[in-house]
Design a protein around this nucleic acid. Structure first.
Lengths: 196, 196
DNA sequence: CGACACCTTGAAACCCCTCAACGACTGTGG
DNA sequence: CCACAGTCGTTGAGGGGTTTCAAGGTGTCG
């Protein structure tokens, strides 16, 4: 039981699962401040893989320390539980995104969510943000082909909604885009755990 | 803060999210023994809706009691965290299912997972299980149309893999079906939380 | 300069959706 | 007892969103 969890200090990573024919589904991208590998520690099963997107720096957390901390500081466990719930809420939103939105709305929603998360850690605004992802990564995250991602990005650009180029996402008309993607950021609850 | 969580004592329910044009995405079905509404309690935001599938019986859990129990029994919080992680792992698997499998494999995978979950609580086996879901519910869960669910069910039946009829799922060739759907039940970790 | 990764675009094929219609069954009220 | 509505399952035809295949362009790096 010498598994470890990490907190991403700088850089981007992604967690994904492979299917047998070589395709993969990216579950989420991790940005600075996010946990890495928390679930595999808790479940004692590595049910997904993690890969860096850029160069990354991490700080290690020993499982034993974590569990010991739980015992001494019950609130910590509650806070972790809250964090896990928020993560699950985001995965759920991805599920809705892939299951019930067409490629354009899917892509728009994804770029908006990423922007909102980055804004929280000071790495973006409603103007845009630096984004090291390739179109191939986007495709794997959104359940699309890279070719189609390219086409849809062009559509969104030509309609003046978003431009993703040269590693930078620039929102054209943020409000219209949010409306188009039916982006409701409430699922990214930031009010914190229910501690008294 | 008078929200409550529940444990499903009998019957089936489902949690879902709506998108604006009237479609919905079912995130998961709850079977006896599952939590209901845990995430909305933790996040203080009701980010999804719940609907009964059959008549149901629930036992209520007060949030205040739950948090108090965490403080007194740290291991309980760890156990809850483990449960939440398992739930998330299942949602992730659904994400992979919808994102990277075609309709037939998707349906097969779903029926297999449901069977495995039911078998754990004594409600099913490798032969089959009673299943009160309609084809419309399956469609909402799998990101498909009801019409297509119907067609794909027929395919699976004609190939002798599964038969879903009259509220009963009957596996034809379980192993071949599991292979076809690339069903790897390891993500449904049942070994329990990492409590020394 | 060549290798490589990534972006871009076109054409054809395919999976799945929408629309439409009908049958089987259930419950309900007359 | 029967007509009726409602839900669910079934099947066909047509259309559209995405995929695959293919090719070429750009930039970076050794």
């Amino acid at each position: 039981m010498d598994q470890a969890a990490y907190i991403l200090a700088s850089g981007w990573a992604c967690s994904y699962k492979l299917v047998e024919d070589g395709q993969r589904q990216i579950v989420d991208f991790q940005i600075p401040g996010d946990f890495l590998g928390l679930r595999s520690v808790l479940l004692n099963v590595s049910d997904h893989s993690i890969e860096p997107v850029t160069d990354i720096e991490v700080t290690e957390i020993h499982v034993a320390d974590l569990l010991a901390a739980f015992a001494q500081t019950p609130r910590l466990a509650t806070a972790m539980l809250w964090a896990a719930s928020r993560d699950e809420a985001m995965v759920v939103e991805h599920l809705v995104n892939i299951g019930r939105r067409d490629a354009a709305a899917r892509l728009a929603h994804f770029l908006l969510e990423l922007g909102a998360r980055l804004a929280l850690v000071g790495l973006g605004s409603k103007e845009g943000y630096a984004c090291p992802l390739t179109q191939y990564l986007l495709a794997d995250a959104l359940g699309l082909s890279a070719v189609h991602v390219n086409r849809v990005l062009r559509q969104l650009r030509e309609r003046g909604l978003v431009t993703f180029r040269d590693g930078f996402v620039a929102f054209g008309d943020y409000d219209q885009l949010a409306n188009f993607a039916q982006f409701e950021p409430s699922y990214m609850d930031q009010t914190g755990p229910l501690l008294s």
